[in-house]
Simulated assay, not measured.
Amino acid sequence: MSEKQERKRGSAPGDAEPGRKKPRAQPQAVAPGGVVKQEPEEEGDATQGSNEGEASQGSSEGGGSVMAVQAMDEPQVKLTVGVSLLHCQACVLPLKPPTSKCEAGHVVCCSCRGKHGQACGRAATYAACRELDAFVRDAKLPCHYEEFGCKSLVVYYQAADHHGACEWAPCSCPAPGCYFFTSPRRLVEHFVTDHRWPVTKVRYGAACKLPVPAPPQGCHVLVGEGDRSVFLVSQCALGAATAVSLVCMRANGAAAAGAAQFKCKLWVELPSNKDKLVLIMSAVRSSDLSNGFPAADTKMSLGVPPVLLHDASGEAPDLMVCIDKACVLGGATGQE
Rank of each mutant, 00 (worst) to 15 (best):
P75N: 03
V77P: 04
C102R: 04
V77H: 05
V77R: 10
V83D: 10
C109V: 09
G64C: 12
L86A: 02
G149T: 08
C110G: 01
Q118N: 08
S59F: 06
A128W: 12
G62Y: 00
A71C: 11
H144G: 03
A127H: 01
T125A: 06
K96M: 14
E74D: 09
C110A: 04
G114P: 07
K78G: 01
C129A: 01
T80P: 06
G64V: 12
S65I: 08
S84L: 04
R113H: 02
L95Q: 15
A68F: 06
C143N: 14
Y156E: 12
Q70M: 07
G121A: 13
Q89K: 13
E54P: 10
E103Q: 09
C110V: 13
C129K: 07
C120P: 14
R113F: 03
A119I: 07
P75E: 01
P97F: 05
E74T: 11
L141V: 15
G58A: 03
G58N: 06
Y156N: 13
V154L: 05
V155R: 14
R130T: 10
E147A: 09
G121P: 13
C150Q: 05
V83F: 03
H87Q: 15
R137N: 13
K78R: 10
Q57K: 12
E74S: 11
K78L: 01
T125F: 08
H87L: 15
V154C: 05
A128F: 13
Q57D: 07
A123H: 04
A128C: 07
C143P: 15
C91D: 06
L86T: 00
D133W: 10
D133A: 10
E147K: 14
S59N: 07
S60T: 11
L79N: 07
L79F: 04
P94N: 02
A71I: 12
C129D: 01
L79G: 07
V66Y: 00
G121R: 14
L132H: 01
E103T: 00
S59A: 02
E131T: 09
V81I: 12
P97V: 08
H116K: 05
K115T: 14
T99I: 14
G121H: 11
Q76G: 06
T80Y: 03
P97Q: 06
R113S: 00
R122A: 08
V66P: 03
P142K: 12
V92D: 05
C102L: 09
A139C: 14
S59D: 09
A134S: 09
E61G: 10
G117R: 07
G62D: 02
V108A: 05
Q118H: 05
K115E: 11
A127N: 01
T125Y: 03
L93I: 07
D138V: 02
Y145E: 08
P75F: 01
G105S: 07
Y157E: 14
V66F: 01
